[in-house]
Nucleic acid binder design. Structure first.
Lengths: 182, 182
DNA sequence: CACCCTAACTTGTCATTGACAAGATAGCAC
DNA sequence: GTGCTATCTTGTCAATGACAAGTTAGGGTG
């Protein structure tokens, strides 16, 4: 309910998170301002603090949403680790704001229990997508797969990739991830 | 000279950049404050603006330093693309502050001519190392190599990797990068 | 239906920050 | 020595995050 007349907004928490996604997509997480979010939602400047405590609290909630969403995307991609890698990249590009927050723990409360749980759930999915070398060192195969997908996504979001890579992340990601173990 | 009595600092630009590296290493680029840097350098709160214009200007200078430093590290690593990948990761970890700024173009002026030049120089090095190894068109191979090194570095810096990976990035990076084209 | 009790939101305030303007100082060319 | 100019200072303003204290609404209880 976005009814704008009532004293009680009714769905402010969700509204603020959506506004944050929009604002971050426009100007990056560094430029995010709680007061700007309040203005976008049509509430007073101190309203966000009630729901999230402070800025880090809001970004923590965003990161939780992000890890959950990434987990869903990975589950939908199936078992093949190549498809998982592509899905990882596609998620990062389509949910840029979430992704840009998720891996910047200096922006939020990385030890928040809810966040730790969400991150752990999704981390399990990531590792499961690649065959494991049990017992031995940390699974370098899984790390390599995660790294190549994560790196391509970060480079894409940073605008560091040459323009000839194109505008659609999916085929580009498929080509890059395919280089692994081949 | 860091003589603290004279009106003219003498080497303020370099001093401020060093202070910025220190501050970012402590609390991340988001928490960086020009006034804090001025305090660390023992000058007035407006002194940084003279040398860098604004915060983005300072971070642009930091990014230029970073791309130059990365280029040097890559050159020192030699021709083997695997060693280049390891050097990339080691640079990111040892020069965390520079690296964390370099790939966040929303923090600085990405179209600054000096920065564009430095980024282009280093980008050339990155692509060259891989095409020499595979003989193929550099596109996807180079992207894959860059992605895997970059991704591992980012995950390391974000603290996202499981603790069993260890504390020394070099052997871990070697294991991961070795998964490429094999 | 009346009460109240608590979550949701507001207004008000303060220290900090980035940015800008205007002034002071010192090193350097001549 | 004189003036020029880069360097640095002081002063100020709007915006922000955080906190304190007050206001409103809406649901449970009697």
């Amino acid at each position: 309910m976005t009814s704008s007349r009532s004293y009680h907004h009714g769905d402010l928490r969700r509204t603020l998170l959506a506004a944050a996604v929009e604002a971050i997509a426009e100007s990056g997480p560094a430029a995010l301002s709680l007061r700007d979010l309040a203005r976008r939602a049509g509430v007073s400047h101190a309203a966000p603090a009630h729901h999230f405590g402070d800025k880090a609290g809001l970004l923590t909630a965003l990161a939780v949403q992000g890890f959950d969403g990434l987990g869903e995307a990975l589950r939908a991609a199936g078992d093949d680790f190549r498809e998982s890698g592509v899905a990882y990249v596609v998620f990062a590009v389509r949910h840029r704001a979430h992704f840009e927050v998720m891996f910047r723990p200096d922006l939020y409360r990385a030890d928040d229990p809810e966040l730790v749980a969400a991150r752990e759930r999704t981390g399990e999915l990531l590792r499961g997508g690649v065959s494991r070398h049990t017992g031995r060192e940390p699974d370098a195969d899984a790390l390599a797969a995660w790294s190549i997908a994560h790196g391509f996504a970060e480079l894409w979001l940073a605008g560091a990739l040459p323009s000839r890579v194109g505008a659609d992340p999916e085929p580009a990601a498929r080509a890059v991830v395919g280089r692994l173990f081949s």
